[in-house]
Computed example of a mutant assay.
Amino acid sequence: MEARMWNGLVSVAKETYTASLGEWVVPRPVMMPLVRGELVGLIWMRPLKVGQDALAGIAELANVAAAAGADEVVLAWETHDVATACELPIVGPAPCLNMLLATQGGHVLHQFPYSEQLLSRSPEGWASVVPDWRGPRAAARRRTRAADPGRGELLLHSHRSGPPRPVRRSVVHAEVRLGDSVVMIAGADTDYDGPGLNGASVGSGVYLCFPEPEAVDDWYAAAVAAGAQPVLPPVETAWGSRRARVLDTEGHEWSAGNYQPGKLGELRT
């Protein structure tokens, strides 16, 4: 991102926070997707309830960025506000404006801490404050590891749901990538009873197509090692392909094989 664009986004974020805090409001998290260096919108997080709904609302912002075809994304939020909404411990400086710049090569977290100077207080007890911006903290950088072109790449964004104790981990947003193919998944919002196995299937599921039969065996072994329930170990089919099937920890069916739907080829008879 060009320095001029970045400095402009930081300036807008600070001005927004200054104006909102003066009106007794902390701005909601906002996502700024960019396409080829051009800002295509400002997406504010919807009104939320404390807890699970706040976690889901933050994750939903990623869907907007994906729909816009963004190649760069800036996400801004206030440390104390998000920690309180998501019922998470406060980590890092607070109060603080955080701005995360995410690209395909990784992401950089910029933090702009501030102190609050009280201007007035409403009859209901709401405080009108003006932020006194301190110097920005050193940017924290993290690069995305290059994916092995012969394997699928799994990107996970997990969160803590429910009260701080006991801790329950689930997936808010995950992407399984294999070449140009992407499957987006997320954990269930609550516990529920899904369909059980009837023979070797629960009736519906996802099929992953691999170019080589050996990759099916590798996928099956990795899935079982990660806690998946074996359903159909790797086997040669009557039509000459190799396939396997598991259930994930929530009971969803995943199949893999080297049969390529939509491609004409010779079948064994």
Rank of each mutant, 00 (worst) to 15 (best):
W126C: 01
M184Q: 09
V206A: 01
G135V: 13
A56E: 12
G205V: 09
H157F: 05
G196N: 10
A66I: 09
E214K: 04
F112M: 07
A200Y: 12
C209G: 00
S241W: 02
V167R: 10
I43Y: 07
Y207P: 02
R160E: 04
Y207G: 00
S128T: 05
A174T: 10
A138S: 14
Q229I: 09
A226T: 08
R145V: 06
Y17I: 05
G251P: 13
G265S: 11
V246N: 00
V82L: 12
D148S: 05
C96L: 08
C96M: 10
V25Y: 12
E250F: 05
V183L: 15
M45W: 03
H110A: 13
V172G: 08
E250K: 00
P47T: 07
E38P: 02
S255Q: 10
L155H: 07
N198L: 07
P29K: 01
A225R: 14
S241A: 05
P93A: 10
D193E: 11
G162L: 08
L100S: 09
A138V: 15
P230F: 04
G251W: 10
H110N: 15
L61T: 06
F210C: 01
V130M: 14
A225N: 11
W77N: 03
S161W: 10
E250I: 02
V12E: 13
V206P: 01
D180S: 11
E72P: 07
G37L: 09
P136K: 08
D189R: 12
L75N: 05
G125M: 09
P89V: 11
Y259A: 04
W254L: 13
E72D: 14
T18R: 06
G69Q: 07
D53G: 01
A85F: 01
P233E: 12
L101A: 13
A222V: 09
G251V: 11
L208F: 15
